[in-house]
Amino acid sequence: MPSLKELSHKKELLSRGHRLCPGCGAPIIVRQVLLAADKPVIVACPTGCLEVGTTIYPYTAWKMPWIHCAFENAAATLSGVETAYRALKKQGKIKDDIRFIAFGGDGGTYDIGLQSLSGALERGHRMLYVCYDNEAYMNTGIQRSSASPLGAHTTTTPPGKAIPAGKTESRKNLTEIVAAHNIPYVAQASPGYHMDLMKKVQKALSVDGPSFINVFSPCPRGWRYPAEKTIEIAKLAVLTGFWPLYEVENGKYRITYKPRKKRPLREFLEAQGRFKHLLAEENKPIVERMEKEIESREKELMIRAGEGEK
């Protein structure tokens, strides 16, 4: 992986002037992903903040062929594009080596686009699906999604007198669901660790088959923290074990970053307004449940990576 100085010579593929919120995590992720791509790319976006914010007519922030699709079918659309490309290449009408990337939010990936993603993975199209996971439907006003963590405040799970906990259900583990498709490359990354993320993108683009990267994407508006703290929170999530960084290469698990000293989960919760209510005495059981879940997932990961005891 080239250094930042070497990367700075590369042409930027997402232009400035897009209309995502100040401090949004999504464009940081997109920039890092596209900087890591060595070959020309074609991008598809399902509905979501990123799609809406970057392509307000008559403007587009994308400097490559880009295709809009509905909320549920980014993976299906892109697999069609990829198939057309293969057919044209076979006929000799296209000579270039092109890569295909889809950028979906958690709503378009965890919930609405899951069946089309699953289908595309099973059919084995050579494409990379990047999920920028901001843990709720931010585009429509912070409604809960199946990626919203336990205890999070969203506008559809507001903590109140009857339910002081906020969201009472645990989140879905999509990375594991995708890994269960036995595709060549699956990873989980955070924009706070840019080299790790970019290395994963290069690996994902080099495999001949479908690949998937789930990227943690802090959202200042929805998570209620000042815009300048996006990267700080992206790092805290990793340091507290809330978002472990790992990859699954041909079924082989590897933890790509282990914090030298684990930080208490409380630091991650305190930094965000969406977890403010969890600091109250009555919500202690919820925080304990979160800690337990993180611990058991960590153990599970260690065992799968061959580092833990059974």
Partner: peptide, 10 residues
């Protein structure tokens, strides 16, 4: 160049 790689607006 850490500011550059983390800038959402390039």
């Amino acid at each position: 160049l850490l500011c550059w790689i983390y800038c959402p607006d390039d």
